[in-house]
Design a protein around this nucleic acid. Structure first.
Length: 425
DNA sequence: TCTGGGGTCCTAGGACCC
DNA sequence: TCTGGGGTCCTAGGACCC
């Protein structure tokens, strides 16, 4: 376990999805740009120019379409394979700067440094990171420096809002930090959301420094352990210190909205098998096994009250963990029979694998393995074929996949698909 | 017609045990 | 008539994050 006293750098890619879309399109460099969610439903990322025009995160596309056209905004369907690939490159670059890194999300990572490092040393590193990622990958990052993760997030919030690059902010010095927290509102603290923020306000707490100064018992009474932890972190006492390197994740999900309304059991089943395949492939890639499968289906919409809203999930626990697509596929079909209702307009389905363990540490109760040797062999062959660029599908996922998500304005794969590599002239 | 798709951690309450 | 109490495990749901 790492010691608590030290420094964190939080590196965050600016407007990540929008930046990825621009890497291979210099002509889009200064044009307003937005990225849409699956089915081109709503806006999930914006370039600074489109932010300035007033477009918001979550704006439904059909509502702002005319405005986007009017301002000649570049509109991109989401291209997640591209974003994952750029993310991987960024993380690989960051790895060289510290022995302790935690990837927090697709566009963010924490780096940890020992207590004795000076502020100027950390600032030098930060400047080098900004320059290296810009040069090698072509995107801008912001960096926050502080003694705890929560403070590093806060410093990063400030860094992002600096007028001119480089976007680096250090809360290393306690006096400077104090001065800044007096100006920062509670809403901006990592972990304080829609529900907690008004509660702080109703107690007369509006700024970060007021959280820091409040007696611990008051915070504990109103906000529980979650609140206390936030307070300690803001005081500079690290307690979210979890840069544990060998921890694996807790669950793997795959869920998606349909491209069009689904009504039949057969199509629902196909979509679930598609998700089982995606999740199991990920499971095997990370060398994990799961003992719990949950399936979820949803019909109707809260936005359209004329159709019945129906949401249901069901789970099954295996005695022996598995990573086999067939095993979970069969279970998914059985579970679907339990919760499926005819006559509804289904819009979404998904699955979740949980109770994960590392494959080589799997505890077995009786049999040498839940899945027969031939089934395991088949999965290995499948993964190999796919790794070498072949498209292989299970017949149970259906051939037409009418329910598949629509992405009408997707940019090419660039780095992720051989056919779409950019051509240098 | 049309409103991501992932994740984490915590809490409350029920089941079950002695 | 009287109807324990403490502990653990599990699950569903909430709150928050990107």
């Amino acid at each position: 376990m790492l010691k608590i006293k030290g420094h964190y750098l939080l590196i965050d890619c600016n407007n990540f999805f929008a930046s990825c879309e621009r890497i291979f399109r210099p002509d889009w460099q200064h044009r307003p740009l937005v990225v849409l969610s699956g089915n081109d439903g709503c806006i999930i990322a914006r370039s600074p120019e489109s932010k300035k025009l007033g477009f918001q995160m979550g704006d439904p596309y059909f509502k702002v379409k005319d405005q986007l056209q009017l301002h000649r905004v570049v509109v991109c369907s989401s291209n997640f394979p591209l974003y994952s690939d750029i993310s991987r490159r960024v993380m690989n670059t960051l790895e060289d700067f510290s022995d302790h890194m935690e990837i927090y999300s697709v566009d963010e990572a924490f780096l940890y440094f020992d207590k004795q490092e000076s502020q100027s040393f950390l600032l030098d590193i930060a400047h080098e990171i900004v320059a290296t990622i810009k040069k090698n990958i072509g995107i801008d990052v912001s960096i926050g420096i502080a003694p705890t993760k929560t403070l590093a997030k806060l410093a990063n919030y400030k860094a992002k809002r600096l007028e001119s690059p480089p976007h680096i902010e250090s809360f290393y010095d306690p006096d400077y930090r104090r001065e800044q927290t007096e100006k920062l509102p509670v809403e901006e603290v990592w972990g304080i959301g829609k529900r907690m923020a008004p509660k702080f306000r109703s107690l007369g707490i509006r700024t970060v420094s007021q959280i820091i100064d409040k007696p611990e018992e008051i915070i504990q009474r109103h906000f529980g352990v979650v609140g206390s932890r936030i307070q300690l972190e803001l005081q500079g006492i690290s307690c979210l210190d979890k840069l544990g390197e060998d921890e694996h994740r807790q669950q793997i999900m795959s869920t998606r909205s349909f491209g069009q309304i689904v009504t039949s059991y057969e199509e629902l089943k196909e979509s679930l098998h598609f998700h089982v395949d995606a999740a199991c492939t990920q499971l095997r890639r990370e060398n994990l096994c799961a003992s719990n499968l949950t399936i979820m289906i949803r019909a109707g919409s809260i936005h359209l009250p004329e159709h019945e809203f129906y949401e249901k999930s069901a789970s099954f626990r295996l005695d022996n963990p598995s990573d086999n697509t067939h095993t979970f596929g069969k279970l998914a079909s059985l579970l679907l029979e339990q919760i499926w209702r005819p006559g509804l307009r289904y819009k979404k389905s998904g699955i979740m694998l949980s109770d994960l363990q590392e494959s080589d540490r799997v505890q077995l109760t009786f049999s040498p393995h839940t899945d027969s040797a031939s089934k395991q062999k088949l999965m290995q062959t499948l993964d190999k074929l796919r790794a070498s660029g072949h498209t292989v599908k299970f017949a149970s996922q259906g051939l037409s996949q009418q329910w598949a998500t629509k992405r009408d304005m997707r940019t090419p794969g660039y780095t992720t698909s051989w056919d779409e590599l950019p051509i240098v002239h």
